[in-house]
């Protein structure tokens, strides 16, 4: 029995190390002096730590602008996808109607769809519409990618807020809209915030569409990818850049940890 527990504990430790170690290593590389990254024998642990590598990345041309672009695109994506998808999520949670199952299935289908392939035709269309190489254009694609997630999480949030409370408010003289605004919405707010944060990550991380749809107004992943694949950026730039892009992910996963299961836990039957 103790042997079994020992085996279990070591499996937990090993898997944790497998997940955490690479993240720690990239952090180490991002704060190592530049010459350590190129020397041989290569020390596992640098003798000194420095911010130089990181500052070199942050100071490289276009990085700050691209970071700002990424934030703007993510903000636009959150605004657009909530404006468009949140009502749908509410409807799926609160109403029984003909075609509800079909709507659910369509949402699931879009979630599984190889959506990045849409970037190429959209680039052609956006050239015609004057949206090519604009932040709005990128945000539009990111919105299409995040809509299924926003719908799913908003549905599960409002399914968790008892309709009886809204009804009670209505018997006490609230209108349908007032009951929603004063009762259901405040209760759903934390979950909605989590969905918003998840949308942020989705947009912050998206590479393919951003690279295809921009030329000068790069988002951060698009900039890093094109400077690595096109210009052969130096190693310390790559490592500091990798770490820089991971930081928000670490914070965000911690913030929305309670909602991770409802974001992904929908199945095909």
């Amino acid at each position: 029995m103790t042997l079994r527990r020992l085996g279990f504990a070591s499996a937990v430790v090993m898997i944790s190390a497998w997940v955490l170690l690479p993240i720690m290593l990239i952090a180490l590389a991002a704060f190592s002096p530049r010459d350590v990254l190129y020397q041989w024998p290569r020390p596992l642990w640098p003798s000194t730590f420095t911010l130089d590598t990181f500052l070199f990345f942050a100071g490289s041309s276009g990085v700050l602008a691209a970071t700002w672009n990424s934030v703007v695109v993510a903000g636009l994506t959150i605004a657009l996808s909530f404006a468009i998808a949140a009502p749908t999520g509410y409807a799926l949670a609160r109403y029984r109607f003909a075609g509800r199952d079909a709507a659910n299935l369509a949402i699931l289908g879009t979630k599984m769809f190889p959506a990045t392939v849409l970037s190429i035709p959209l680039a052609v269309t956006f050239l015609r519409w004057g949206l090519y190489d604009t932040l709005l254009g990128v945000a539009i694609v990111h919105t299409a990618l995040s809509i299924p997630f926003v719908v799913v999480i908003v549905t599960s949030i409002f399914a968790g807020v008892a309709f009886e409370l809204e009804e009670a408010a209505m018997t006490l003289g609230c209108s349908r809209a007032q009951a929603f605004l004063r009762i259901a919405l405040p209760m759903a707010l934390p979950g909605l915030a989590a969905a918003g944060i998840f949308t942020f990550v989705l947009s912050w991380n998206e590479v393919f569409a951003s690279t295809i749809l921009t030329l000068d107004n790069r988002t951060l992943p698009a900039l890093v990818l094109s400077s690595v694949s096109g210009a052969g950026a130096p190693l310390h730039y790559r490592f500091a850049g990798g770490f820089f892009m991971v930081i928000p992910a670490l914070v965000i996963i911690f913030l929305i940890r309670r909602y991770l299961l409802s974001l992904w836990g929908v199945t095909v039957r």
């Binding site: 997940v19 590389a29 890093v224 490592f239 892009m245 991971v246 992910a249 965000i252 991770l260």
Partner: peptide, 21 residues
């Protein structure tokens, strides 16, 4: 939560992380 961390990491960042290895 610990095992869920990579959900928030893009394929680009993951590539850079393992490149350093």
């Amino acid at each position: 939560y610990l095992c869920a961390i990579p959900i928030g990491i893009s394929d680009l960042a993951a590539g850079l992380i393992w490149l350093s290895i």
